[in-house]
Amino acid sequence: MFDEIKKRYLEMFESEKLPYVKCNKCGYVFYYPRDYCPKCGSKDLAVLESKGVGKVFSYTKFVNKDGKEVIYGIVELNEGFRMYTNFLDEVDIGDEVVVKYTIKDGRKIPIFSKNKPKKE
């Protein structure tokens, strides 16, 4: 079950969808995949797609080994769950951010930015 949820997450990343888990019993939402609800223990869970919009919960800036400034932090999605991420641009706590996708080790991963996607 854990493996299935993980696989579903990775597939959703590839199609640029941000997954999260919702407990059908108590309604708790969480990001890091488990096959039980960490609040109530229920195994009745649903993998859902987040709208990918949230607010910066906290952030920090550092300079990496290559001399590049990196922004790392936690985002709280509007659905109510939080996840660690990098931010693509300067942010402050409380700023609205949206999910984007970047390639890491040959696969797509979610990352956040203040810039809204351009309407096509």
Binding site: Y32, S58, N64, G73, I109
Partner: peptide
């Protein structure tokens, strides 16, 4: 697979967030 895919310098970054 979902946590260690971002660039950080933990534990310094983690405490910096706090």
């Amino acid at each position: 697979e979902f946590y260690r895919i971002y660039e950080d310098i933990n534990p310094v970054t983690d405490y910096a967030l706090v």
